[in-house]
Design a protein around this nucleic acid. Sequence first.
DNA 1: ACCTGAACACCGTTCAAGT
DNA 2: ACCTGAACACCGTTCAAGT
Lengths: 194, 194
Amino acid sequence: MSSRRSPGQRAGLTRPLVLATARELLAKDGLPALTMRSLAQRLEVSPNALYSHIESKTTLIDDVLDDVLAEVDVPDVAVTPPAVGLQALMASTYGVLLAHPDLVPLYLARQGARGPNAQHLGDVVLALLARADVDGPHAREALHVLIVYTIGFAAFTTRAAETLTDGPGSQSQELADNFDSGLCWLLNGIITPR
Amino acid sequence: MSSRRSPGQRAGLTRPLVLATARELLAKDGLPALTMRSLAQRLEVSPNALYSHIESKTTLIDDVLDDVLAEVDVPDVAVTPPAVGLQALMASTYGVLLAHPDLVPLYLARQGARGPNAQHLGDVVLALLARADVDGPHAREALHVLIVYTIGFAAFTTRAAETLTDGPGSQSQELADNFDSGLCWLLNGIITPR
DNA sequence: ACCTGAACACCGTTCAAGT
DNA sequence: ACCTGAACACCGTTCAAGT
């Protein structure tokens, strides 16, 4: 309510801090609880102070989504066989999504992320596809199918985890196996259509 | 602004009319443009009048999403071979989704609809799966995979339609074919895992 | 039962200050 | 450059009327 600072004083706010706090709030209370005002309150700052560090609420969320993708393990394009690399990359992405269940609906709505990390992951997928002689529009199509499949499956899994509320173990492992098999079918269809 | 009616007079509002107008607004200007207030204005009514016909904005959207599913062609469970019926049902659903591109992101976010039409479609899928000796948790899992796949693919297709902006013909047909092949792979994996 | 008027408790964002 | 105060133009929803 009543601020301890007068107009001139700094609050020590920083862009990474804002993003991290937004992530924290998202993980703790979900999307509806993340408002500019709640975020500002958590940082003990007035709402409009955030606009010195981010452009808008939309770009804030976009940036959070892209940030998380930095956790994905990227295979070495040069030495990894395409099919193996694609399987590993998508499986790692799937794992990262499962580690952030609260964000999955957001990825779904935006059909992926848009920032530099997402861009890089997309480039790696395209490079692996190219090494399997898949390129052009066909490759971009395959990329989008893989993205939708992975996010869609993660949405399914996290939702199942909510409803079943079982101890993390057998059932989650089973679902991950299902992800792998479905992914394998898709990759077969993508890589060997000729 | 200034209403033509005094408190006691009726506006001829009706639940189906409210839902239809919401759909209209959604199709014309998208989700952000659909507010209780814009909807009320279009119906020439004050915002709170809507609450005599709907419970909340959330249930309004849920109902709109379920309504659209009435357009899906449902195969006769008794006489249609399971694999054929599932392929036909999901393909019809896919077609309906493509006919309402503005709603696809909403289905994505909610991972399907929740009302009576969605319930019925789900029951039909489960009945077809049962006739293929798939039941129990495995069947519910398969149902969710099919839902996510179909909505996910529709999201991909509508988005591709936006970016490419090609005349509706060759390319759209190609995408529909891709949907069918992917669906076929999935059904193979679901129906013959033993 | 169905509608209006007025209000409540919020939003995201902008603009003019202050240091 | 970074922050505050105040305000703007919105939201969804509720509550007390009126007929």
